[in-house]
Simulated assay, not measured.
Amino acid sequence: MRSLPPVGIVIIGRNEGERLVRCLASAGGAHAIVYVDSGSTDGSVAAAREAGAEVVELDVSVPFTAARARNAGLARLLEIAPDARFVQMVDGDCELARDWIGVGSAALEDDGTLAAVFGRRRERHPDASLYNAMCDEEWDVPVGPVRACGGDALFRIAALQEAGGYDPTLIAGEEPDLCWRMGARGWAIRRLPAEMTLHDAAMTRFSQAHRRSKRAGHAFAELVWRHGSVADPSWRRAVKSTLLWGIGLPGIAVAGALGAFAWLPALILPIGVAGLFGVQWLRIASAKRRAGFGARYAQGAAGVLLATKISQAAGLLRFHLNRLRGRRGGLIEYKASG
Rank of each mutant, 00 (worst) to 15 (best):
residue 118 F to W: 13
residue 60 V to G: 02
residue 332 I to R: 02
residue 22 R to H: 13
residue 143 V to E: 14
residue 298 A to W: 02
residue 319 F to A: 06
residue 138 E to K: 11
residue 151 G to D: 03
residue 300 G to A: 08
residue 9 I to F: 04
residue 210 H to N: 09
residue 290 R to F: 05
residue 120 R to K: 09
residue 294 G to M: 01
residue 157 I to K: 09
residue 316 L to M: 14
residue 319 F to R: 06
residue 281 W to Q: 11
residue 258 L to Y: 07
residue 130 L to T: 01
residue 307 A to K: 12
residue 282 L to K: 10
residue 251 G to Y: 08
residue 310 I to T: 11
residue 168 P to F: 08
residue 22 R to S: 07
residue 198 L to I: 14
residue 245 W to S: 03
residue 240 K to E: 14
residue 218 H to S: 10
residue 136 D to M: 05
residue 51 A to F: 06
residue 271 I to E: 09
residue 123 E to N: 02
residue 243 L to N: 01
residue 37 D to M: 04
residue 11 I to Q: 08
residue 44 S to V: 00
residue 76 R to V: 02
residue 329 G to L: 06
residue 235 W to A: 04
residue 298 A to H: 02
residue 154 L to K: 02
residue 167 D to H: 07
residue 200 D to R: 13
residue 42 D to C: 09
residue 324 L to D: 03
residue 267 L to A: 14
residue 103 V to Y: 05
residue 257 A to K: 13
residue 268 I to L: 15
residue 280 Q to H: 11
residue 249 L to F: 02
residue 168 P to M: 03
residue 30 A to S: 11
residue 273 V to Y: 05
residue 229 S to R: 15
residue 120 R to H: 14
residue 255 A to F: 10
residue 189 I to Q: 15
residue 64 F to V: 09
residue 238 A to D: 01
residue 61 S to I: 00
residue 310 I to Q: 07
residue 84 A to M: 06
residue 104 G to K: 03
residue 294 G to L: 00
residue 197 T to A: 12
residue 182 M to K: 11
residue 59 D to V: 02
residue 129 S to W: 09
residue 63 P to G: 02
residue 8 G to M: 10
residue 260 A to S: 12
residue 17 G to C: 07
residue 323 R to V: 04
residue 323 R to N: 02
residue 327 R to H: 07
residue 31 H to T: 12
residue 79 E to V: 03
residue 335 K to T: 03
residue 268 I to T: 15
residue 214 K to Q: 15
residue 267 L to T: 13
residue 297 Y to C: 07
residue 259 G to R: 08
residue 13 G to I: 06
residue 45 V to P: 12
residue 223 L to D: 01
residue 18 E to P: 01
residue 118 F to I: 00
residue 307 A to G: 00
residue 167 D to L: 04
residue 281 W to C: 01
residue 152 D to G: 00
residue 1 M to P: 12
residue 284 I to V: 12
residue 56 V to Y: 08
residue 82 P to M: 04
residue 103 V to N: 02
residue 203 M to I: 06
residue 209 A to L: 11
residue 160 L to F: 15
residue 159 A to K: 06
residue 48 A to D: 10
residue 1 M to C: 07
residue 162 E to T: 05
residue 69 A to L: 03
residue 282 L to T: 13
residue 218 H to W: 15
residue 146 V to H: 01
residue 70 R to G: 01
residue 188 A to P: 00
residue 15 N to S: 11
residue 6 P to V: 07
residue 104 G to D: 09
residue 295 A to H: 10
residue 113 T to R: 15
residue 282 L to Y: 13
residue 254 V to D: 02
residue 141 V to R: 15
residue 3 S to N: 12
residue 173 G to D: 02
residue 151 G to H: 08
residue 201 A to F: 13
residue 188 A to Q: 15
residue 119 G to S: 05
residue 336 A to E: 15
residue 67 A to G: 15
residue 183 G to Y: 01
residue 172 A to C: 04
residue 306 L to C: 07
residue 10 V to K: 07
residue 84 A to G: 05
residue 326 G to C: 03
residue 283 R to A: 13
residue 277 F to W: 11
residue 20 L to H: 03
residue 222 E to D: 03
residue 221 A to T: 11
residue 44 S to C: 14
residue 201 A to H: 13
residue 323 R to Y: 13
residue 54 E to F: 07
residue 33 I to P: 00
residue 118 F to G: 12
residue 2 R to D: 13
residue 81 A to Q: 07
residue 22 R to T: 05
residue 296 R to G: 11
residue 216 A to P: 00
residue 238 A to F: 10
residue 175 E to W: 08
residue 5 P to E: 11
residue 41 T to Y: 00
residue 122 R to L: 08
residue 36 V to K: 10
residue 291 A to C: 06
